[in-house]
Design a protein around this nucleic acid. Structure first.
Length: 110
DNA sequence: CTCATGACTAGCT
DNA sequence: TAGCTAGCCATGA
């Protein structure tokens, strides 16, 4: 249970700076095909500073937080600090999307 | 056990 | 592009 969440967080840490991915894809790479909401649970409970939460977006490339939410601005700022273009709370996934070269080798089989 | 709740998605209008 | 819907799945009341 918590292992699943940790697994997702570990995968999130593998996202390189300047790259982004979606909740669903993050979960998929962690080994949970339909676990978008699992990714949410993992990130929500993670107060860990080593987790690059700002590199996780919705499947359409938009920031998940509502525009008026404090995290929205912070996330955009952090992304721009990594040279990721954010326009109207949205990122072009085709351009900045995380390309995983070896999905299976990201984490131990466990 | 049922119900509500999320930083969600894919599909359709 | 925007809105709506059914499906998704762990967690907690």
């Amino acid at each position: 249970m918590i292992d699943k969440l940790e697994r997702i967080l570990a995968t999130a840490r593998a996202i390189p700076p300047g790259r982004v991915t979606s909740y669903g894809r993050l979960a998929m790479h962690a080994g949970f095909p339909r676990g978008a909401r699992l990714a949410v649970a993992a990130l929500r409970g993670a107060d860990d500073e080593t987790v690059p939460w700002h590199r996780i977006l919705r499947a359409d490339g938009r920031i998940a937080f509502p525009p008026d939410h404090p995290h929205h601005a912070e996330q955009a700022q952090r992304l721009r600090a990594e040279s990721v273009m954010v326009r109207n709370g949205r990122v072009d996934l085709g351009r900045f999307g995380w390309r995983v070269d070896a999905p299976d080798l990201l984490l131990p089989p466990d």
